[in-house]
Design a protein around this nucleic acid. Structure first.
Lengths: 356, 356
DNA sequence: CTGAAAGCGCTTACAG
DNA sequence: CTGAAAGCGCTTACAG
């Protein structure tokens, strides 16, 4: 029988449990025999403080275990170094890696990072407002419909940056945003498959991030363009989801089509599902069918056959988005954020020359 | 050529760019012709307000687009509904899923969730202090050495809950913590392999979370116990890392040992690496070697062979940890958190009867 | 039901 | 170099 437990861990620091109120700058001032303004000066490293009084105050601070109240500081100074990211997902590789880049960058800059997951049940305006109320600024991950919808509703006056799937249609000014060139990447992956001798390339799509129009997303678009400029047929995309299960469903159908010898997938999870469906159908990869994924998730190099895919620099995207938000927040200049790495096709085992 | 870009997205809300200060409670009061205390009453849904004045205030609020300043509220009321989680990782499945459970629970409870990644370079005391300064409370993920070390340094007076790999040695009171019974799960997985006819079970370990002592972690411990009570040999564990690469390295050595017909892995990523190494060595799974993973990451069901593994309820662990912190924060009672699901062996293709 | 006062813990000018 | 004042935007008693 399995057991799941919980208890209280032993704590090495057996401080007074007295729950006494934390020391304030007035307490420190009294202990040091100065005014509390002077205490404020030393904790803010103000230059005009006599060395001896500084020492005295410093000592009182350590004795009392004083810690400046962050909330009071924020209110009085107007400085709020906290940002919150709005995202519909935290587990899928692209999102998680972007989040990681965001966290890394904000930590390096001394900002605090909050995460708020968006759900279909959310009143987006309300959610955005309450996130904005928190202070510092927002960054929204607009990879999907929900994220993109949130993006559209961010009021112009709240500091916000976005990481999106594709550049906005017009060149309208507005929210600062970052993206990778998914379209070109898909074009390149498709061209690779074509060069391998395949008649055309099927596509198992990730859900579109834009509800409106015929827009199917840059990855689908890139494949289409590559096929069209090669003058070959453009099979209808399939796929209805983000995960391996969705890939499996799409793959089952594709596996029945003997003409389908090359399949590009909207992400690596889908590709895994496709691989699995192909396996179940008795079709070998890459001998019978070639498969290319997208994103280069950590495990993609270790599955068998290892997955040929497009490496995406999500972390870099996250870092860049933070950089954008940061310059929007304070007009001061910082070292410019390094640009994300460009998407790159990673050749592995799952794609090869057409043999049938 | 790939291009990565960034620009400003068009924003539907073309509000006045005037960057004018947000309306305060006094602005609202003036607009409504009441005192600001009254405004405070209506935004706090205080019952004693005449319906008509309430309406008047409400209208002024919407007209001015008033939003209560969260920082000021926190300072004045002493209420701080924000928690921050300390973790050394956000990308590995176990961590990411725990994080997800934490986010979900805190969102449901109306708390804000911050994430601070721990690095080896951190001055843990400093990091903890600054996280604690943020307000609400801490939850630390103690799956690894860094997290466990942080846990040890959390001062007794800061509200904190932990999710850990194993119950603390003594029954010392201290930090509230949650864990799953990894040891029993490993025992069960090992027994399964033994029942399949394997002479013994090798183990590719995840890094230990405790630096001290011979303690190798509950998963390693569970396997050892199962082997010992079966009276079979206990091969030395291998593995030096968390990812597929580490699994691959360990797997390469194990693949050379013809006696190694059953391998338990500390997590699914390691198992993937082992599978890959076995494949490269020409050893079939499960015909020649059986492999069992741990955690049941999302893709484990879709690789080939699909991975027999132990499903862990990390999300439930995260939710439970939040519940613990919450009751520590306010003594008030809430609906008790549902206990996490118990670890469960998931039978798939990678483990089978010994055949050689 | 509503207003005037005091205070949350700090910072920012302003005086000495 | 250091202290007294005013204020950040709100809430919590206290009066009416």
């Amino acid at each position: 029988m399995f057991v799941t437990g919980h208890t209280r861990l032993g704590s090495s620091a057996d401080l007074p449990q007295g729950q006494q109120k934390a020391a304030s700058i007035r307490d420190v001032a009294q202990a040091a025999g100065v005014s509390y303004q002077t205490v404020s000066r030393v904790i803010n490293c103000h230059p005009n403080v006599r060395e001896e009084t500084r020492k005295r105050v410093q000592e009182a601070i350590t004795v009392l275990g004083f810690r400046r109240n962050a909330t009071a500081f924020a209110l009085a100074s107007g400085v709020n170094r906290s940002i919150t990211v709005l995202t519909s997902n935290t587990l899928l590789y692209g999102y998680a890696a972007t989040l990681q880049g965001l966290e890394e960058a904000s930590r390096a800059a001394g900002h605090t990072l909050g995460v708020r997951v968006l759900t279909p049940e959310d009143d987006l305006d309300r959610t955005i407002a309450s996130a904005a109320d928190t202070g510092g600024g927002l960054v929204v991950i607009g990879f999907d419909r929900l994220g993109a919808a949130a993006l559209d509703r961010v009021p112009a006056h709240v500091p916000c940056a976005a990481v999106v799937e594709a550049p906005p249609p017009g060149s309208s000014p507005g929210l600062p945003a970052v993206w990778a060139d998914d379209r070109e990447a898909a074009r390149s992956a498709t061209a690779h498959l074509l060069a391998l001798g395949h008649d055309t390339v099927h596509y198992v799509a990730i859900p579109a991030s834009t509800g409106s129009r015929r827009s199917v997303g840059p990855r689908a678009e890139g494949r289409r363009q590559a096929l069209e400029s090669a003058g070959v047929a453009v099979p209808e995309p399939s796929g209805k989801g983000w995960d391996a299960q969705a890939g499996y469903e799409a793959g089952k159908k594709l596996a029945r089509d003997p003409e389908a010898t090359a399949i590009l997938c909207g992400n690596d999870d889908l590709a895994l599902g496709v691989l699995r469906a192909l396996h179940h159908a008795g079709r070998r990869v890459p001998e019978d069918v070639s498969v290319i994924g997208f994103d280069d998730a950590p495990h993609s190099a270790y599955v068998t056959p290892s997955l040929t895919t497009v490496r995406m620099d999500f972390q870099g995207l996250g870092r860049a988005a933070f950089g954008l938000l940061r310059t929007r927040l304070d007009t001061g200049q910082h070292a410019p954020t390094a640009p994300p790495a460009e998407p790159a096709l990673v050749l592995r085992e799952s794609a090869g020359p057409r043999r049938t």
